[in-house]
Every structure is written in structure tokens, then in C-alpha cells.
């Protein structure tokens, strides 16, 4: 983790921990998902997410983190429970209503999920698909302010000179920068990230986490990150949710997370390695 330590210069502006001043942006109530009947992957999860700051969900792979985060914007259909975004229950929405809710939630993926054969700038503009009428998408006549916004964001993530390159010409770290910019392009009320650093090397991982935290803080967007790397979670999150076997086993500030919790989350054999 020495690389990580070198990069701490900017982490002084760490998001304030646990300072819930406004209403919660997102509340989960009794959220359950079972792909097979009687075998829930996540069961009865109730969580509240504040309107600012970074929340990290940690836990071993296969514990339902990814299912949980995908239930929020219904990329995965929850079996039961409620997802309340600013008071609206997303699980009740259909069609245009669901799309309108989805466009308010930006998402960053592990495998970046860029459209490889489109240019970088068009990938960013894909973040506006929930807003822009179809004929404009078809003709590539995006609204001027969207294009200006896209270039500003690209400049912010340091890739403006790559705007016309195809997404498959970029490196992993660059692609994830585009992925973050695309999510922010939605002008979301909430940012979800599903293992955003798992496909990246340690140094790039730290850079990506910093970028995501800073960009969200600049725009006052709360972030929920799935991450299995406890060191990164501790460093960047103001709150940690630990999951094991489809349930929440820890919920609190990073400082409160101790070895016993980690053992409970990850099992005994590996605990030593997680203290970053």
C-alpha cells in the first residue's frame, strides 16, 4: 500500500464523516432479492443514505453487494421491499417513470461498460440518453449545453484531448474516468459505483477513487460504492457498511471497523491482510 500512501496529499479534504444535515437521499426498506425461490441473495436490508458523503459497502465477492446496488436503480428487480429516492418508491415505477428515476442515479461499473466503438465524447453524451429526444440521439444533434457540459467534464477528468478517440483506444484508468464523467453527465442526485477499481492497478485505483470523491463533492452528490478493498474503503468513505451472507453486519464510521468485524465479514483466514 506504499503507492497509496504517496497519494494522500489531496485526501485532506476528506468528506465530513456522518454529518447528516439534510434528509436522507435514499432509503432502503426490507429489500430482498432471491434469484431462486427461497434462496435470497440479499435479505431484508434496510439502510438510509445521507444526502452527502461517500458510503462504502464492503464484503467478500458473492455476498450480494452487487445485487444490492443494482436493486437500487432496478437493473436487478428486487423480490420485495422498497427503494425510496427522495420519498418516491422506485419499485413501484414502470416505463417512463422508471427511466426518469434512473436518469437521476448515475452509475459507475467495474468493467467501465463504455460503448467501445463510440467516441469518448459520444460515450459521455450517452449519459444524457434519459433526457435527450430520440431524433437528436439518432442525428447526433445533442443540445449545445449538453455538449458544452460534456467537454467541461472531459476537461475535468483530464481527457478532453481524447474526445474524438474511440473508447476502445483508451487504457483502463482512462476508461473509468470516462465512466465517471458519463455518470456525472446525468446530473444525478446520487452516484452508485459497483467495484469501480477492481479491474485497475493499485495506483490507478487510488486516482480513480480520488477523482470520484472529489467530483461528487464538488457537485454535492452523495456516493455509494461497492468495494472489496477495505483499505480503499477506509481511506475514502465517511461511512462503511459491511455485508456478509446477504445481510448487513456492520454499519458505522471507518474508525469503528475493527478486526472482529472484518473476521465476521471476510472470515478468519484473511483478516490480517485487510488492515491497510
Amino acid at each position: 500500500m506504499s503507492v497509496a500512501e504517496d497519494q494522500t496529499s489531496r485526501s485532506a479534504e476528506r468528506a465530513p464523516a456522518g454529518k447528516v444535515t439534510r434528509d436522507n437521499v435514499l432509503s432502503l426498506r426490507g429489500l430482498t432479492k432471491a434469484y431462486e425461490r427461497g434462496k435470497p441473495v440479499i435479505s431484508d436490508i434496510s439502510l438510509d443514505f445521507p444526502a452527502r458523503g461517500v458510503v462504502a459497502i464492503i464484503g467478500p465477492s458473492g455476498t450480494g453487494k452487487s445485487t444490492l446496488i443494482r436493486c437500487i436503480n432496478r437493473l436487478v428487480e428486487p423480490t420485495s421491499g422498497q427503494v425510496l429516492l427522495g420519498g418516491t418508491d422506485l419499485t413501484k415505477l414502470r416505463g417512463a417513470g422508471l427511466r426518469a428515476a434512473r436518469r437521476e442515479i448515475g452509475m459507475v461499473f467495474q468493467e467501465y461498460n463504455l460503448v467501445e466503438r463510440l467516441s469518448v465524447i459520444e460515450n459521455l453524451l450517452c449519459g444524457r440518453l434519459g433526457y435527450v429526444p430520440l431524433w437528436r440521439v439518432w442525428m447526433r444533434r445533442y443540445p449545445d449545453e449538453d455538449i458544452a457540459h460534456a467537454f467541461a467534464l472531459l476537461e475535468r477528468v483530464g481527457l478532453a484531448d481524447f474526445a474524438t478517440r474511440r473508447a476502445d483506444a483508451l487504457s483502463g484508468g482512462q476508461r473509468q474516468r470516462v465512466g465517471i464523467a458519463r455518470a456525472v453527465m446525468q446530473s444525478p442526485r446520487l452516484l452508485l459505483a459497483d467495484e469501480p477499481t477492481s479491474s485497475l492497478d493499485p495506483r490507478t485505483s487510488v486516482e480513480i477513487m480520488e477523482l470520484m470523491r472529489d467530483m461528487a463533492a464538488e457537485r454535492d452528490i452523495p456516493v455509494i460504492i461497492n468495494i472489496h478493498d477495505v483499505a480503499l474503503a477506509r481511506r475514502f468513505a465517511s461511512r462503511i457498511v459491511g455485508m456478509s451472507g446477504g445481510s448487513v453486519v456492520y454499519d458505522g464510521p471507518p474508525e469503528g471497523l475493527n478486526d472482529d468485524h472484518l473476521t465476521q465479514i471476510y472470515g478468519r483466514s484473511e483478516t490480517g491482510g485487510w488492515i491497510g
Binding site: 436503480n73 437493473l75 417512463a96 427511466r99 426518469a100 428515476a101 434512473r102 436518469r103 437521476e104 442515479i105 448515475g106 452509475m107 461499473f109 468493467e111 467501465y112 461498460n113 463504455l114 460503448v115 467501445e116 450517452c126 449519459g127 444524457r128 440518453l129 434519459g130 433526457y131 430520440l134 440521439v137 465512466g179 458519463r182 455518470a183 446525468q186 452508485l192
Partner: peptide
């Protein structure tokens, strides 16, 4: 993957 990302952005099915 890309389709999932665009769905998450609220794209309609023709989009």
C-alpha cells in the same frame, strides 16, 4: 455491459 450502463442512465429502448 454497455447496454446495462445506458439502461442505468434512463435510456428508452429505441435509444
Amino acid at each position: 455491459g454497455p447496454v446495462e450502463a445506458l439502461t442505468a442512465a434512463g435510456a428508452s429502448w429505441p435509444a
